[in-house]
């Protein structure tokens, strides 16, 4: 890489970082506005109804509520950038610390689901693109559209009913059986917070197997949703690529079809596919909100919905900010990966 190209890359990354910061502050502006129009008074929800006027005034001052709106926003932004999302009304604990505790469960679920979605979705999309209009193509398309049309919480309930209730192939709600839960807390050091990783690192394969039997159903259901999206996009990218002239050249030269598709075309399909996978990964964090409530999965989604039911606004908005930040982060990451995989993008 020449120094010219280096500077232009650095400048582009700098520009992306600035956009990122502006978007993040915008995100905070939206949650700030939401938190200020909420009809629940933050002071009375902390102190209760029987606080004296002096106590209320003191609390208002402590929370910065006596200052002008723009100053309150400034405090909110600087605190959020330092990782301070306020105190949960329900538990009186810092929201950021609570989210840090809940987030690994969601991450574990979404990661496994994305892996499943890619492993099934990419080959399915590629095969559909090589035989457009065939019965196989129609089936992939229909299965994909069904994935788009299924309410994920309903799919979860049906999954529980069939695979847990009727067939007994998988374990039910939660991340571990109750007996393993106790053991896990005492015997395994939570390095990552992801039970599959932690138990594997500790060599506790019995616990790993139990955790796996709990996670496989919700992960498969979310994986199906992401598979629907990934296979559809892969198909259209691959169709587009197979129409290019370099593919014709490769075929004319007598290259085996398998190599044409999987090596030559695939290399170019990978580039836009990265964005698609990143987007579907991010949207799984969202799909997880409903899935987690069904499977009693103690992740970010459960955290937000539980907080919602008791009107714990700092927790709800803190969770919203974190999911939004992950969204923005993943977008930026896919942008950077894009540049790495596709030299033309530099």
């Amino acid at each position: 890489m020449t120094s010219d190209r280096m500077t232009s890359t650095v400048r582009q990354i700098g520009g992306t970082a600035l956009t990122l910061l502006v978007t993040f502050i915008g995100l905070l502006a939206v949650t700030f506005i939401i938190s200020r129009v909420v009809p629940i008074d933050p002071v009375s929800s902390i102190l209760g109804d029987r606080a004296s006027a002096a106590q209320i005034a003191e609390a208002r001052e402590r929370l910065g509520l006596d200052q002008p709106m723009w100053q309150q926003f400034w405090i909110y932004v600087t605190q959020a950038l330092q990782g301070d999302l306020g105190l949960s009304v329900r538990t009186r604990e810092p929201v950021a610390a609570e989210i840090a505790r809940y987030f690994p469960a969601t991450l574990e679920l979404a990661t496994l689901a994305t892996i499943l979605g890619v492993v099934v979705g990419v080959p399915a999309g590629v095969l559909a693109a090589t035989k457009p209009g065939s019965l196989y193509d129609q089936i992939v398309r229909l299965i994909g559209l069904m994935g788009y049309s299924m309410p994920v919480f309903w799919l979860g309930l049906i999954g529980l009913l069939v695979f847990y209730g009727q067939l007994g192939w998988v374990s039910g709600p939660g991340r571990l059986d109750a007996s393993f839960q106790m053991m896990f807390e005492f015997e395994v050091t939570p390095l990552t917070g992801m039970i599959l990783v932690d138990t594997a690192l500790a060599g506790r394969w019995d616990m790993f197997a139990n955790a796996f039997s709990h996670i496989i159903l919700p992960a498969s259901l979310l994986g199906y949703i992401s598979m629907a999206y990934i296979s559809r996009m892969t198909r259209s990218f691959m169709m587009n690529e197979l129409g290019q002239e370099y593919i014709t050249t490769a075929r004319v030269k007598g290259m085996p079809e398998r190599r044409v598709v999987w090596v030559h075309a695939m290399r170019n399909v990978m580039v836009p596919l990265i964005t698609v996978v990143a987007l579907s990964y991010a949207s799984l964090l969202e799909g997880a909100v409903l899935t987690e409530t069904i499977f009693a999965w103690p992740g970010l989604g459960s955290y937000i919905t539980d907080a919602l039911l008791v009107a714990d606004m700092p927790a709800v908005l803190g969770g919203t900010v974190v999911v939004g930040a992950v969204f923005i982060g993943l977008n930026m990451l896919s942008d950077l990966l894009y540049r790495l995989v596709d030299p033309r993008a530099l």
Binding site: T31, S283, V316, G324
Partner: peptide, 24 residues
């Protein structure tokens, strides 16, 4: 377009949740 991007950065369902939580 910046405003549009900000709203795009929000996951739909979660923003809808937060809004409904406020509006009732």
């Amino acid at each position: 377009m910046r405003i549009t991007d900000i709203f795009l950065a929000f996951p739909k369902l979660i923003l809808a949740l937060a809004l409904v939580a406020v509006l009732g």
